[in-house]
């Protein structure tokens, strides 16, 4: 499971890290660190609870990372051609 972090939406409520401090790491101001989060096996329940606790909807659950494979076989310039 993966959590997509919409960093610009974070306003430092810190509800996520109150639920799962090991999953959601905050900076010195109390806002979420940038970058999506890969959730380890045993932490999925707490992590999804933490993601659901965000008042700003800054955290998005992505249960199927396999579906997000980037089609690297296609070169961008081929599209533009």
């Amino acid at each position: 499971m993966r959590i997509i972090v919409h960093k610009t939406k974070c306003q430092g409520h810190a509800r996520c890290s109150a639920q799962a401090p090991d999953v959601f790491k905050l900076d010195d101001e109390g806002y979420i660190l940038p970058g999506d989060i890969e959730v380890a096996e045993g932490q999925q329940l707490l992590a999804s609870r933490g993601a659901r606790s965000c008042p700003e909807r800054a955290l998005e659950l992505d249960p199927t990372p396999a579906a997000r494979v980037v089609p690297d076989a296609i070169e961008p310039r081929v599209w533009r051609a």
Binding site: G12, A14, L26, D28, E29, G30, Y31
Partner: peptide
């Protein structure tokens, strides 16, 4: 806000 946040952060 950045100036004041650390004074009242969760930490």
């Amino acid at each position: 806000r950045s100036l004041l946040n650390p004074l009242l952060s969760p930490k």
